[in-house]
């Protein structure tokens, strides 16, 4: 099952949209860098239900409060996500 990683803000380009178009149930979604802005309002951005993660440090840096549906993780948990998934797909810019 795929781990999708997005680093672009939800309306900054097509990364989120392209990613969601390739998201299959059972995949995991990780929001990093500017993508964490989507984690404040997952419903508005049509994020999938469950298996949605965000780098807590990136959210904290931007003053973003994660919605309950989004799990905040540290870098170690990110590594674990990578171990648990193949392939890893980065959607950027």
């Amino acid at each position: 099952m795929t781990l999708h990683i997005i680093n672009q803000s939800p309306l900054g380009g097509s990364a989120l949209q392209d990613c969601l178009g390739s998201f299959v149930e059972g995949d995991a979604l990780l929001l990093i860098e500017d993508a964490v802005y989507a984690a404040a309002s997952p419903a508005e951005h049509k994020l999938p239900q469950g298996q949605v993660f965000a780098l807590a440090a990136d959210a904290q840096a931007r003053g973003v409060t994660l919605a309950q549906a989004v799990t905040g993780i540290d870098e170690t948990a990110w590594v674990d996500l990578c171990v648990a998934h193949t392939p890893i797909v980065s959607w950027f810019r």
Binding site: T2, S22, F23, T86, P87, I88, V89, S90, W91, F92
Partner: peptide
């Protein structure tokens, strides 16, 4: 549907 297609690979170069 690109999702199941992508899932079939070990590595993805973006």
């Amino acid at each position: 549907d690109t999702g199941p297609f992508i899932r079939g690979f070990d590595q993805v170069l973006s």
